Amino acid sequence: MPDALESAEDISCYTSADIIVGVKYDSSLPALTKTKLFHVPGAGYDGLDFSLLPNTTIVCNCFGHEQAIIEYVMSALLLRHVPITDADERLRKGDWKYWAGGASGLRTELSSESIGIIGYGHIGKELANRAHAFGMDVSIANRSRVEASSHIKKSYALDDLSSMLKDVDIVVNTLPLSENTEGFIGQKSLKI
C-alpha cells in the first residue's frame, strides 16, 4: 500500500484487510472495523492510537533489531571519543596525529567511561554486553531487579534513577515510548 491512501481502491483494500503491517494508525487514516491483527515491524508502537482500533484487533510488535540499534549506539559513542573522520583523512595523507605516543593526538577512550542503561530488555542486554566488551563500567536501571554480574557493575530500580545518573558518564534509554515512559528522563533528570 502507498503511504498516502488516496484512491478508493487503496482505501477499500486497507479498510477490509484482516491483517495490517504498519507503524502508524491515527485519525488521519480510514477507520478500521474488520482488522484482526495490526503488526508493527519494530519495537515501538507509539505511532498507534489504540483508542481508534477495534476492540477485537490484536496488536503485536517484534524484536530482533537490537543488533542494528546497538551498532548505531556504539558507533555514536566511538565517534564521541575517537575523531574517526579526521583520523582517517590524516592517515590517508601520511599524518599519524593519533598515534599512541603523540601528545597532539590525545583522546579519550570508551574504557574510561561508565554507561547507565535504562531498561534491560533485548536492547538493554545487548548494549550491556557490547559496552562491557569495550571495557566500560555498566550500570542498569530497570523495573525488575537485575543482579550485578561480571559485566554489570551496579543495578538500580527505575524509581532510583537519580542515583544511577549521578554515578555514570553516559546514559542510554532503551525503554519503549509509551504514556508511562514519555518524558521519563529529561533536562531535570540530567541537570542540563
Rank of each mutant, 00 (worst) to 15 (best):
K24H: 15
D167H: 05
A100Y: 03
W96S: 03
E66W: 02
C60R: 15
H81Y: 12
I140C: 02
R143C: 04
K154F: 11
D10H: 14
G116N: 01
A131G: 02
S178H: 13
V172S: 02
I170R: 08
I69T: 03
V138M: 05
D160P: 01
N142C: 10
Y120L: 01
A128R: 04
D46K: 10
V21F: 13
P41K: 12
L161S: 04
D169L: 09
K125Q: 14
G105Q: 00
N180L: 14
V82F: 12
S7I: 08
G186L: 12
N55T: 12
G124P: 03
S155L: 03
A141R: 03
K188Y: 14
T174Y: 01
H65W: 09
G124T: 09
S51Q: 14
T108M: 07
I117D: 00
A31S: 13
P54Q: 04
L177Q: 05
R80V: 08
G47W: 09
R90T: 01
S112P: 00
G105H: 00
L78Y: 09
D167F: 04
A100K: 08
A68I: 11
G183Y: 07
I152M: 07
F38A: 03
Y72W: 07
Y156N: 05
A141E: 07
R92E: 07
G116D: 01
A133I: 01
S111D: 06
R107V: 03
Q187F: 13
N61D: 09
E9I: 14
K191V: 10
H151K: 14
I118M: 06
Y14C: 08
C60T: 15
S112V: 05
V171Y: 04
I70Q: 00
H65E: 07
S16Q: 13
N180M: 13
S149W: 09
L175G: 00
A141N: 06
I118Q: 02
K125L: 06
V171D: 01
E109M: 10
G102P: 04
L177S: 09
L177A: 11
G42D: 08
E182T: 15
I58C: 09
I84T: 11
P83K: 11
T57M: 01
W99A: 13
S104P: 02
K188C: 10
F38T: 04
A43F: 12
S189W: 11
E66R: 00
A87I: 04
L91P: 00
H65T: 10
E89N: 09
R92K: 11
G102N: 15
L177W: 10
F63N: 10
H122Y: 07
A131K: 02
N142E: 11
G22R: 03
L177D: 02
D95L: 05
V73T: 07
A4K: 14
M1I: 15
I117Y: 00
H65R: 11
A128K: 03
E182V: 14
T181A: 03
I58F: 11
K154T: 14
D88G: 05
H81Q: 14
R80Q: 11
A87G: 00
R80E: 09
I11E: 07
S51D: 12
I140K: 01
S144C: 10
P54F: 04
L37K: 15
A157Y: 09
G47E: 08
L175H: 03
D137A: 14
N180C: 08
H132E: 06
K97M: 06
K166V: 07
H65P: 02
Y120T: 01
